[in-house]
Design a protein around this nucleic acid. Structure first.
Length: 595
RNA sequence: GCGGGUGUAGCUCAGUGGUAGAGCGUCACGUUGCCAACGUGAAUGUCGUCGGUUCAAAUCCGAUCACCCGCUCCA
């Protein structure tokens, strides 16, 4: 989530939206009659159709008619093929992808300050020995070797302070910008006054980079210069617990041992359920694409650049499921892995970023609540390539306002995943692509071909988050109308496409309504529900359709039987006009954008 | 995981120890010519769950579950 750049308030109430979702059958709490289960939600009849319509729209515009015919950066058509891969895969897939090692993030709590952080984000400052430090480079004359390390051997090699950062480089950056956050020994109150990165012999290996600290010791008023090595705190260093000082207070004995938060869902293959049978529910659909890259290349007539697309469920044991369906433990993704030559990757990245933004706008998130945000450099994931970056398409949900929450991430993954699978000792499969359009020309004038691992641009969207954003965007309070609210769905995703009502349930009107209903179902039934309802007052039926977000209601009345016209009532304006009965099908087709 | 809040009919909520309630919605019948109309009637609850105190618990106490808000987290 990111901060708002403009402060337009989001006035819709999430409680009201959730209430309508329950009342009208969009979303129910999962396992509700048993008290629910944290982080899981079920879709009711309208919600299931809405979700299907959004998934179908994506499939249509990605797989069936990629980018609605928009040409790629080099002017050629965009090529995409689909796959549908398993939720359970060989556990080695998740070793290679880094999820088994990296996704199960051990967490540490500071019992005193109640702060929590990832254990692998904790970086320790170690006092090092001068002889080690001088290898390959001269130490400036001004350096007075620190008595702390040399006179107190107990400190040498130990962690004397900690900071939280994503990498050594980031930790050094934090410290040099704000040296005061470093407390070298809380009992002696040795605060750092100035910190500079010493251009030591090993700057190519940041984990052995050293910092020069100027200390301000209140008692002695002396300035010491202290060489410090910075490196990730190993899990073993947390035991005994007094080894590692808190990054917040500098005090020891306040941190818990790293605890496994187990973000992967574990299960067992087969009935014996031993440790050897452990498997995982996928935390992302992407790996199913990568491990089938060679299959797709070998068995279909695709050529780079091309994409593989897939929708499907994924599972993450989120630490804190929160915000309705926004962060669920079971969720559905819509992912593209687009493979291209490394030289073209930046162009494709920009192409997908811009087109995906346009797509969400076209589907109904057109307003200021949708933004495209480039990640800052220090946010980039481990696979994100330097210089190419990652973008989020973000929506201002009522619960994130004035900030935004991610709907889709467009990431430049370089060849991280293909390379990981190719290099895993047990895959032993060459995943390099032979591009016969590249390479030197042979004598016959044909290119000799070039072998390479394609770079990957990954537009990865959350289907459930998309549904939630559409629900929030569509929710429109209107005190003027009986329902007090209506759902302003884009007709393309609206779960109910049209409704047919006899004004009263007699005098031939229900028969005529049934006829029109049959016509509309025949023509549009594959796109969504066509509602009909002969009972209750017409106003009540309109109001119900407002809450369901049905864009068009057609009412059969006495005049229909004599002059062959019906009333069409527009959801957004509540205005009514008469059109010929025979024009209704075309009217709906136009309204749904089918021209 | 921490702190705060909430949990009673489909929805919104009242109910401070003594028979489980209201409005709206839903359903049925009648009426009804265009925005939750009108009349009559009906159904709907283990008061989130479990335990304790009490002659008696929706109400007091404890635990637990779920949701909301703020932290934290979200390769």
């Amino acid at each position: 989530m990111s901060d708002a750049t403009d402060q337009q308030p989001q006035t819709k109430s999430m409680d009201d939206i959730m209430s309508l979702c329950k009342r009208r059958g969009f979303i129910y709490q999962a396992s509700e009659i048993y008290g629910g289960v944290n982080g899981f939600w079920d879709y009711g009849p309208l919600g299931a159709q809405l979700k299907k319509n959004l998934r179908d729209a994506w499939w249509q515009d990605i797989v069936m008619n990629p980018c609605q015919g928009k040409l790629g950066p080099k002017g050629g058509p965009v090529s995409i093929v689909p796959v549908d891969t398993c939720i359970i895969q060989n556990p080695k897939v998740w070793e290679a992808s880094g999820h088994v090692g990296g996704f199960n993030d051990p967490m540490v709590d500071d019992k005193e300050t109640k702060q929590r952080f990832r254990a692998d984000h904790l970086f320790g400052l170690y006092v090092i020995d001068g002889s080690e430090f001088t290898v390959g480079g001269a130490v400036p004359d001004s350096v007075e070797w620190n008595q702390l390390a040399l006179e107190n051997p107990a400190y040498a090699g130990k962690i004397i302070s900690t900071v939280i950062a994503g990498s050594v480089a980031e930790a050094i950056g934090h410290i040099t910008q704000d040296p005061k956050q470093v407390v070298l020994d809380c009992e002696l109150n040795l605060r750092v006054k100035k910190a500079t990165l010493w251009s030591g012999p090993n700057t190519d290996y940041p984990e052995t980079s050293a910092l020069l600290f100027s200390l301000s010791n209140n008692q002695q008023q002396a300035v010491l210069v202290l060489p410090i090595k910075i490196g990730q705190v190993a899990i073993d260093d947390f035991y005994p617990p007094d080894e590692v000082p808190s990054p917040f207070s500098g005090r020891r004995n306040t941190l818990t041992l790293p605890r496994d938060f187990n973000l992967m869902f574990k299960t067992y293959l087969g009935a014996t359920a031993t440790e050897d049978d452990i498997a995982y529910l996928r935390p992302e659909t992407a790996q199913g694409i990568f491990i089938n890259f060679k299959n797709v290349v070998d068995t279909t007539r695709v050529s780079v650049p091309f994409g593989i697309a897939q929708t499907g469920k994924a599972f993450r044991n989120e630490v804190t499921p929160r915000n309705f369906t926004f962060r669920s433990r079971e969720f559905e993704q819509m992912e593209i892995e687009f493979f291209c030559h490394p030289e073209e990757a930046n162009d494709w990245y920009a192409f997908w970023r811009d087109w995906r933004m346009q797509w969400w706008q076209e589907i109904g998130l057109a307003g200021e609540n949708l933004i495209l945000r480039e990640h800052d450099k220090d946010e980039l994931a481990h696979y994100a390539k330097e210089g190419a970056g990652t973008s989020d398409i973000e929506y201002r949900f009522p619960f994130t306002a004035p900030g935004f929450g991610e709907l889709e991430g467009i990431a430049h993954r370089s060849n991280y995943d293909l390379s990981a699978h190719q290099n895993h000792p047990e895959s032993n499969t060459k995943l390099e692509y032979l591009d016969t359009t590249r390479g030197e020309l042979a004598k016959n004038g044909q290119p000799k071909g070039e072998r390479y691992l394609p770079d990957v641009i990954e537009p990865s969207a959350g289907l459930d988050r998309g549904v939630l954003a559409i629900l929030c965007e569509a929710y429109t309070p209107d005190p003027e109308r009986p329902s007090k609210v209506y759902m302003k769905f884009h007709p393309r995703v609206a779960p109910i496409k049209a409704a047919v009502f006899p004004l009263v349930n007699k005098d031939g009107m229900p028969e005529k309504a049934a006829e029109l209903h049959r016509l509309l179902v025949k023509r549009f039934g594959h796109l969504g529900k066509i509602e009909t309802d002969p009972k209750q007052s017409i106003g009540k039926r309109y109001a119900r359709m407002d809450e369901a977000g049905c864009p068009f209601c057609f009412t059969i009345d006495g005049d229909t039987l004599t002059d062959g016209t019906v009333t069409v009532r527009d959801r957004d304006t509540a205005e009514q006009k008469r059109i010929p009965f025979d024009d209704v099908v075309e009217f709906v087709a136009t309204g749904l954008g089918l021209g």
